[in-house]
Design a protein around this nucleic acid. Structure first.
Lengths: 207, 207
DNA sequence: CGTTGCCCATGACAAGTGTCATGGGCAATT
DNA sequence: AATTGCCCATGACACTTGTCATGGGCAACG
């Protein structure tokens, strides 16, 4: 079925060492796939990928210092021949668009069956695209991010409970302006509060 | 090194199918460990454990319908000889106490090296206790949950952005009482807002 | 060039929020 | 029997928050 070729050279990036190691074990069971490098943060992937001549990079989105989206963008810029397969815990519609904007070839959520992972790697390596079907539909429905940049900034500050005065100081704005941005964001998300709005934006992957 | 015994019979419970499968692959690499059952939710574990005569149950805390803590309590009640090893993404100090209160014999966070997992299973099976050392120290320092039950209820409602009036209606209380509980919780957590308080409580595993 | 959209800002008003003092009911502890 | 701690409640006060009307500056698009 397969030509007798060298195994696909894969890099794994996930901040949780346990699942990173487990995914490596899972993929190494496949004879045509070989995990040649692992990273615990996005800032390491570009260098590791170059060093080990990686063909497919499997990146988690949530990582502490540099997230998977940023890492993907840098990686694609330096090694356009290296494919990226994004893996994430949360099925936020906004993430899908962001992933492909960053140059990813595939997108999986972590509750897809484990048997599908190896196939996804093969498809991506062969030049194909892999998208979680349920998420794809959801993403097309939802439309794209309606929030302006300022509204996003203000919301993400409000998320952690900062009062308006503090946000205004941090952004070098007047308190009135901050409240206007917040009010706009609340309206666009259909929420009643800043905090409901922040949650809604977070769930959509807008923030 | 090991006596020639039957392999340890392990059950895996995690809501994310991908990491569940990956952990299974990792553990099945060990000759003396055998994953005999998997569950995607806590409500399934007790029945599965009984059916497959499981010796060690590896439970994630975060699961949709019934969480790992509840599942552990039920499991320990019905099969006292079955050990529980808790695995979680977040290192909230409060979780550790809750896990042992539920009858767990071990507690691991998901960013421990994957090589340590098999050893933890063996130790727990042998009747020992396994605790993430960094978390243990953190837990002893933090002390235990200072929030009363009502304060926790009120906080968890406030977390999602509900206004006081709505919380009061949901709990059949007067708005003044809700604000008192909130004010107390804010004081105890050293926060400035209800939302900061909710975050703090959440990070401590108090909520 | 005019329009449109986003940014920034101000001021004012209604509603929601955090704090405090005060007090009654109840269960567990001393 | 008295104390302590949690629950519940009320009312009042200062402060924060959400909304609205209004207006200027600026860049992009027709």
């Amino acid at each position: 079925m397969e030509l007798k070729e060298d195994p696909i050279r894969v890099l794994l990036a996930d901040d949780q060492a346990l699942v990173r190691g487990a995914l490596a074990a899972l993929l190494n069971l496949e004879p045509d796939i070989c995990v040649v490098a692992q990273a615990g943060d996005g800032s390491e992937v570009a260098a590791l990928a170059a060093e080990h001549r990686v063909q497919v990079a499997l990146l988690d989105i949530q990582m502490p210092i540099m997230d998977g989206l940023e890492a993907a963008a840098i990686l694609r810029q330096r090694m356009p021949e290296c494919k990226v397969l994004m893996v994430t815990t949360f099925d936020r519609p906004g993430y899908l668009r962001a992933a492909f904007d960053a140059g990813a070839s595939g997108f999986l959520v972590k509750d897809t069956p484990s048997a599908a992972l190896a196939d996804a790697v093969r498809q991506v390596h062969a030049g194909g695209r892999v998208v979680d079907p349920s998420l794809a539909a959801q993403s097309l429905m939802g439309g794209s991010n309606p929030l302006t940049e300022r509204e996003r900034e203000v919301l993400s500050q409000a998320q952690s409970g900062a009062p308006v005065a503090q946000i205004a100081a941090a952004m070098h704005l007047s308190v009135g302006t901050v409240r206007n941005h917040l009010s706009n964001a609340i309206g666009k998300t259909g929420a009643a509060n800043r905090i409901e709005a922040a949650h809604a934006a977070h769930e959509q992957g807008w923030i």
